[in-house]
């Protein structure tokens, strides 16, 4: 879901920089110094998890997990995702430096949305609300990102319309699987370390 270098137009890149700068500064404000190690190590965990390829029929897809990241981190997902993507761009050349901010916004904004959704559904929580809202967060993470990627491409040029449509369609099966995986991961977190899900996160 990374957009490579050299594709997007100047206005799209600039919009990405402004939006991401806003999100990141808000996220950094909410992240106290004591939380830096926690957020950083969690980000490395998601960096490693995004290297996992899950089979889908004859092909495979790698996990994104921005929904799960969002529901654990809230607005701090912005700096965390920016850092993760910067490392991916520098270490593996996935995505790119000039498109970094656009990619970060495309993934971090749905993450923040899933944070609020998850809180909304789990004021009083039980197993079923956890499964349902976990699934929803996984779906929103992927679907939202796919739509934002498509939007970035189409606002760059009408010529990308077919490519953008294909990207959204290709992510529909991925979205279901991420939803399922996010739901199961939330349930397992609730069993092993429930305080991670229920503690008060500064909004």
């Amino acid at each position: 879901m990374h957009i490579s270098e050299g594709i997007l137009s100047a206005p799209v890149l600039l919009t990405g920089v402004i939006l991401t700068a806003g999100g990141v500064s808000l996220g950094l404000k909410k992240m106290d110094y004591e939380r830096i190690p926690e957020v950083a190590v969690l980000t490395s965990a998601f960096f490693v998890a995004s290297l996992i390829h899950v089979p889908i029929g004859p092909s495979s897809a790698h996990l994104v997990l921005n929904g799960l990241m969002g529901l654990l981190l809230g607005w701090i997902a912005f700096p965390a995702i920016l850092v993760g993507l910067a490392l991916q761009a520098l270490l593996f050349q996935f995505g790119g430096l000039t498109s970094l901010c656009v990619n970060a916004f495309n993934m971090a904004f749905p993450a923040v949305v899933s944070f609020y959704l998850f809180r909304l559904f789990n004021r009083k929580y039980n197993r079923y609300t956890l499964i349902f809202s976990g699934f929803l967060c996984g779906v929103i993470g992927i679907l939202g990102s796919a739509f934002l990627v498509a939007l970035s491409l189409v606002t760059t040029g009408e010529a990308f319309l077919t490519a953008a449509k294909l990207i959204v369609i290709a992510h529909l099966p991925v979205m279901i699987i991420e939803g399922g995986i996010t739901a199961a991961a939330v349930v397992s977190l609730n069993k092993v370390r429930p305080e991670l899900l229920t503690r008060k996160v500064k909004i």
Binding site: L68, L72, I181, A184, V186, L189, L196
Partner: peptide, 13 residues
Amino acid sequence: YAYLIGMLVVRSY
């Protein structure tokens, strides 16, 4: 895989 990811998150904390 979901449990694997859950355990990774727990270990990271």
